[in-house]
């Protein structure tokens, strides 16, 4: 029996993977703050004046897109990747490959809101926002780490280090120490001093002071 019919569903994996680090958002969309807080800046750069902040779950309207950039070639939604897929599809369907519309592989780093600009990496549409609960993300993260579709979350095991290996894949994680990492994360929360940091940039001729 040919192996190919057994393997074709695998293409689903690669075709359905998508660039969710930067969800495709359009002007006029309603988005939700999916970070603990969202800083709104006067200009579309974190080197500009802070206008205000929003909290997790706040609903906002997008009035414009700024700093639109192409997804990197290695992303599953990049122009390169989509063109390759289109070429293969076209060959199978015996037609000419169609150009890939820019909006499919371009993303905005900053979204214009009513009172300034917010980082797109913290703003998501309703579908994705509905999955932003601790219970759901822990379930997904554990499934990813274990390499299995479904598994209950456990904080005791040493999981998969695929996303953070040392050079040549030699670095291995030890026993997960959630207590320490949470302690460090909590210790740093709210300690960022914007004025002091501005002084650091100014003294070093960095950012807006270069």
């Amino acid at each position: 029996m040919s192996v190919f019919p057994k393997m074709w569903p695998l293409c689903l994996v690669f075709s359905s993977f998508s660039a969710i680090a930067f969800e495709r958002i359009n002007e006029g969309d309603t988005v939700y703050v999916a970070c603990e807080s969202l800083t709104v800046y006067e200009k579309p750069t974190a080197f500009s004046k802070v206008v205000r902040s929003y909290k997790f779950g706040d609903k906002l309207n997008v009035t414009g897109l700024k700093q639109v950039f192409p997804l990197p070639a290695t992303d599953f939604s990049s122009k390169k990747f989509l063109e390759k897929r289109e070429k293969e599809d076209a060959a199978r369907e015996e037609r000419r490959p169609q150009p890939i519309p820019e909006e499919k592989y371009m993303r905005a780093a900053w979204l214009q809101l009513k009172d300034g600009y917010g980082a797109a990496s913290c703003l998501v549409k309703q579908d994705l926002f509905s999955s932003q609960t601790e219970e759901e993300v822990l379930k997904r993260v554990e499934a990813l780490a274990s390499g299995k579709a479904k598994r209950n979350f456990s904080e005791d095991e040493s999981g998969d280090m695929t996303a953070m290996r040392g050079a040549a894949g030699k670095a291995k994680g030890g026993k997960a120490d959630y207590e320490t990492i949470d302690k460090l994360a909590n210790a740093v929360k709210g300690t960022f001093n914007l004025d002091a940091h501005n002084q650091f940039r100014q003294q070093g001729s960095l950012g807006e002071y270069q």
Binding site: P9, L10, L12, V13, S16, F17, S18, I20, A34, C35, S121, C122, V124, L128, F129, S131, Q132, T133, E134, V137, R140, V141, A143, L144, A149, K150
Partner: peptide
């Protein structure tokens, strides 16, 4: 499995 993998890799900022 592929569908589940896709869902699990859709993490969002919190994930």
């Amino acid at each position: 499995g592929a569908m589940e993998a896709n869902k699990n890799s859709t993490l969002g900022p919190m994930g």
